[in-house]
C-alpha cells in the first residue's frame, strides 16, 4: 500500500509521518526515541522547550518535550517516561515503526534573553529532557553566554538521564555540572540530597543569571524559593509547566491553569507571570 499521512482537515495543524530511527533505553522506565521523516515531508524545526504531539496508531496522542539538538536537521528526539498505557505503547515501538507528529507547540526557553549572562539550569528527573535542548543551544553558541551551570537531581543513580553527556559537559570550560540523587547506594559517590542542596556549591552572580527550571511542580517551587533567596529577580526565572493536554492548540480546554493555556501560553513561563498562580492549590 502506498502509505501516506494526509493532512486531515479536522486536525490542526497537520500531522507529519515519522519513523522511529532508534529507541535508546536511558533508565528502567525512560527511553529516548529518535524520529526521522517517514516520507518526503521533513520533520519540523523546533526551539528548545517546545513539545510535539506524538501519535501512536490506535492508541492516542501524547505531548512529549523535544529533548534533542535544534540544529540537527531532519531528526526529532524525544525522551519519554513510561507511566501509563499510552507512554508504554510509545516506548515499546521498534525502529521502523511509524509515529504521527504534530507540532512543535508552545513557548521556548529564553535563550535570546539569556545572551551575555550566566545560564543556570536546574532539572529534576525527566525534567532534564526539555532542558537538554537548551543546553545544546548554549553549547552551540557558547560565546554568547558566560557561565553554564547545570544542577540535576533524580530519585536514585539508576534514574539519572544522559549520564555520559552530563560528564562530558562537566569537563567543558566555564561549565559546572552537579548531580544529586534522593536515594544513593554505597556505589554512588556523588551527592545525596534534594537538588536544592546543590545550590551551596555554586557561586552565583544573581544580577547576571538567567535560570531555567524543569521538574516535578513541588521541586520547581522549592527551587524558585532557593533562587529568589539568592537574589535572582523573578523576570529572570523560567519554568516549564505540565498539564493535561489533548489538542495542543488551545481548543480542548484541558490544559488551563488560571488564565493560561499551558499548550499556547506555555509550557515555558517566566516566573513573574506565574507567581500569583503557582501556590494556588487545585487551581
Amino acid at each position: 500500500m502506498t502509505a501516506a499521512v494526509v493532512s486531515a482537515p479536522v486536525l490542526p495543524p497537520a500531522m507529519t509521518a515519522a519513523r522511529v530511527a532508534s529507541v535508546m533505553k536511558e533508565t528502567h522506565d525512560t527511553f529516548t526515541l529518535c524520529l526521522e521523516p517517514a516520507e518526503s515531508e521533513p520533520l519540523p524545526a523546533f526551539a528548545p522547550g517546545q513539545f510535539s504531539m506524538l501519535y501512536v496508531f490506535g492508541v492516542g496522542e501524547l505531548p512529549i518535550s523535544i529533548s534533542g539538538d535544534p540544529h540537527e536537521p531532519g531528526r526529532l528526539v524525544h525522551t519519554v517516561r513510561s507511566v501509563g498505557k499510552a507512554t508504554n505503547a510509545l516506548v515499546n515501538l521498534k525502529p521502523g515503526a511509524w509515529v504521527g507528529v504534530r507540532g512543535p507547540f508552545g513557548t521556548s526557553w529564553p535563550l535570546e534573553a539569556a545572551r551575555g549572562r550566566d545560564v543556570l539550569i536546574v532539572a529534576g528527573g525527566i525534567g532534564l529532557a526539555p532542558l537538554r535542548s537548551a543546553i545544546h543551544e548554549v553549547l552551540r553558541h557558547r560565546d554568547d553566554y558566560v557561565r553554564l551551570m547545570v544542577l540535576y537531581g533524580a530519585r536514585s543513580p539508576k534514574d539519572l538521564l544522559y549520564r555520559r553527556q552530563l560528564a562530558d559537559w562537566g569537563r567543558l570550560a566555564d561549565t559546572q555540572v552537579l548531580t544529586t540523587v534522593d536515594y544513593g547506594g554505597v556505589n554512588w559517590r556523588g551527592y545525596v540530597g534534594v537538588v536544592t542542596t546543590l545550590f551551596r556549591y555554586v557561586r552565583l552572580h544573581p544580577a547576571g543569571t538567567t535560570v531555567m527550571i524543569c521538574g516535578p511542580e513541588i521541586m520547581m517551587r522549592y527551587v524558585i524559593r532557593e533562587v529568589e533567596k539568592r537574589g535572582i529577580p523573578p523576570e529572570q526565572i523560567y519554568l516549564s509547566m505540565e498539564r493535561n493536554m489533548k489538542c495542543a492548540v488551545g481548543f480542548c480546554g484541558h490544559c488551563q491553569m488560571g488564565p493560561y493555556f499551558v499548550c499556547k501560553d506555555g509550557p515555558i513561563f517566566a516566573y513573574e507571570r506565574l507567581r500569583p498562580w503557582l501556590e494556588k492549590y487545585e487551581l
Binding site: G124, R155, D182, G215
Partner: peptide, 24 residues
C-alpha cells in the same frame, strides 16, 4: 532547618511514579 527541609523534601519522593494516585 536547612537539613530538615531537605530531609522532608527527600521524604516526599517527588520523582516516584504515581499510579492511580489522588492529589498532585
Amino acid at each position: 532547618s536547612e537539613r530538615l527541609q531537605a530531609a522532608r523534601m527527600q521524604l516526599l519522593d517527588i520523582y516516584a511514579p504515581r499510579t492511580g494516585g489522588k492529589l498532585v
